[in-house]
Write a protein that binds this DNA or RNA. Structure first.
Lengths: 182, 182
DNA sequence: GTTGGCATGTAACCGGTTACATGATTTT
DNA sequence: AAAATCATGTAACCGGTTACATGCCAAC
């Protein structure tokens, strides 16, 4: 439960507050771009969700519109209340397991297929996870080459790499297992 | 794109078809129970979502009501079309990364905290993941003791264990990293 | 002057959650 | 007779996606 009285998800708010806290004042348009460029791997949101949310956050006192630029551009700034809200979430929020896991459902139902079919599916999954692993490792390489350590996204990137790596190993192990015992 | 023309998620349908294919005819009530008992770790759905979905699936010809029991109980049976739909999804569906990852968002924003605060958060996360890991390994142990290998949920359980294990390692590594380089 | 990027918003819809509502049968 | 469980449904709401809609400004 936060200072404002809601106990549910509201992670979009947190993502927006986080971007404003990390990179300073920005417009809805800027934030939409930042979602695409930086947070996309952990959270996605389009402008049609971001604009109304910023309006609600303004009403709730978490952000303010400090300046209006050309083309109706509104520069949002995080307020002390917003910073407090963000810090509370970061420090007190407890992670809970995702309850809608498409890959997990797929894995769950695999025994419905014939062994050779399941192997084919697992091989495709493995290839996909390997490709994604390369992609993520690519991000880490390019980032580390240019800047110093531990900027935003580094921890999330590391978590992603480890989890996708685990998925590769799972696929590999499952294929071997089916091949051995049919 | 499936035989029925929808290209979007529809994983609830797949979960329901999977349960009907695996365990035979069942009522909406039975399926609700099965969701709680078996699929809960990968997919969740309440009766208020299941009943209307079964009605739609009946209209679409994926299931039929073969018999009606006492108290208006409707026994749903999967049709050949339903089986085909399920097999198509299992064989052709491509996994895509989850786009709304609360743990990932939390990790992403960790650098906003002071090192000692981030360490405290990571330690709580680690404890949580360790507890969940024990829980999942407990499921595997009890299942393997009683029955033969590779029933429903085994692959999903293995995937879950590996991914939660990766999260534990991530938390551990991140803590050490902050302690070292602060 | 036209194209493209900047910039904001709304409306319709879908999937999912919570709460409301009802009634039959079995168990105690 | 009361409580628990079986069994089905609907309504209100929320978060998120897609599509619609508008207009400003800069570059070519």
């Amino acid at each position: 439960m936060s200072i404002l009285g809601y106990s549910w998800v509201m992670s979009l708010r947190i993502a927006l507050l986080g971007l404003l806290a990390a990179a300073g004042p920005a417009s809805g348009y800027d934030l939409t771009k930042k979602f695409e460029l930086s947070v996309a791997h952990v959270w996605q949101a389009g402008h049609s969700q971001i604009y109304p949310e910023l309006a609600k956050m303004t009403v709730d006192g978490l952000v303010t519109v400090e300046a209006e630029g050309p083309r109706g551009r509104k520069l949002y700034t995080i307020t002390p209340e917003g910073t407090a809200e963000l810090r509370t979430w970061l420090i007190e929020h407890n992670v809970s397991p995702p309850v809608r896991n498409e890959a997990g459902l797929h894995a769950f139902l695999l025994p419905l297929l014939e062994p050779h079919e399941a192997i084919a599916v697992l091989q495709r999954m493995k290839a996909y996870y390997e490709a994604r692993l390369s992609e993520l490792e690519g991000f880490r390489a390019t980032k580390h080459a240019s800047e110093h350590r531990h900027r935003f996204g580094d921890y999330a990137l590391d978590l992603g790499i480890r989890q996708v790596g685990a998925a590769v190993e799972w696929a590999d192990h499952s294929i071997a297992d089916i091949e051995r015992s049919g």
